[in-house]
């Protein structure tokens, strides 16, 4: 479908392609470099002598006998117990996504079907809440949570993350439910269903694409969170991201940085898989809000 209007001169096409290639390098090189470097020793990853050492692993061969080493990974996962943080992350993320979506679908559906003015106001308030820096809310939680002895536990941060996630989930699902024709559930109600039965039997079967997309973003919010989990979880309940931050805080011993590098690569891996499988949903989710205005 190369129409007349989209044809370009060869010089322009070369320029545009060159620009895109440059962008691809800028976007991906840091990840490839860190992935490669995570299998080296610190002397290569931070090379005092020659940067090509990081490519060939000169120091790595001297220190470990091979060009690749998994010392960073075993140090992080076993010695520093990164597996524990991974499990905590899994628990937090799983429950945050499930609860957010349950609350969000109910609320989003109600907002999409109510014609009253207060529905609009609720959406506006949600927009203001969405803009709130998370750390300002955290400073509101800390003292009460200490007093009530709920600080440090996983359920506390799950419910906090669910709440922080609600404004976004509501907006997204609300605009998604607006796309499902009103006639669908209204005809079910004419046939004698209550509102909830109509929701249960008519809307739920057709809402999954929107829920999956929203779920992805809830996942990202919970997985990527640092402010809430770093402040609200005790040492033994730490999730991955605060754990990585605490690797850095510990003294700069030789090799300790490589633990952090390995942990960073480990924590980034699930995100790569996520984009690989859900690229289309992520793109459509990012644009959903935009197209609606």
């Amino acid at each position: 479908m190369a129409s007349m209007a989209s044809r370009r001169s060869p010089a322009l096409a070369t320029l545009a392609t060159g620009f895109v290639i440059l962008w691809i390098i800028i976007a991906s090189f840091p990840f490839l470099w860190t992935l490669w470097g995570s299998f080296k020793v610190q002397g290569d990853f931070f090379s005092k002598a020659d940067w090509t050492n990081a490519l060939w692993g000169t120091r790595t061969i001297v220190e470990t006998g091979g060009a690749f080493t998994t010392n960073g990974y075993s140090g992080a996962w076993i010695e520093q117990e990164f597996w524990r943080a991974t499990m905590n992350t899994f628990i937090v993320v799983f429950f945050t996504v499930i609860i957010s979506l349950t609350f969000g679908t109910l609320g989003g559906y109600a907002l999409a079907r109510s014609g009253f003015r207060y529905a609009f106001w609720l959406l506006m308030i949600a927009l203001v809440f969405r803009a709130m820096p998370h750390i300002t809310l955290v400073s509101g939680y800390l003292l009460p949570f200490f007093e009530w002895n709920v600080w440090g536990h996983l359920p506390t941060s799950i419910i906090v993350l669910v709440a922080i996630n609600q404004p976004f989930t509501l907006w997204m699902l609300h605009s998604f439910f607006l796309n499902i024709p009103k006639d669908l559930d209204e005809s079910a109600m004419v046939d004698g269903c209550t509102r909830f039965q109509a929701f249960r039997h008519v809307i739920i079967p057709v809402m999954w694409p929107g829920v999956v997309t929203t779920g992805l973003f809830s996942f990202l919010l919970a997985y990527n969170d640092f402010a809430v989990t770093a402040m609200l979880l005790s040492q033994e309940n730490q999730t991955m991201i605060p754990k990585i931050a605490s690797f850095l805080g510990s003294t700069f011993e030789e090799g300790n940085v490589m633990f952090a590098v390995a942990a960073v690569v480990s924590a980034a891996a699930p995100l790569f898989v996520l984009i690989l499988f859900f690229q289309r949903q992520i793109v459509s989710g990012l644009t959903a809000g935009a197209v609606k205005g």
């Binding site: 669910v162 609600q166 929701f199």
Partner: peptide, 8 residues
């Protein structure tokens, strides 16, 4: 419908 979300 909106209660859980609103409460949170």
């Amino acid at each position: 419908f909106i209660f859980p979300s609103l409460a949170a």
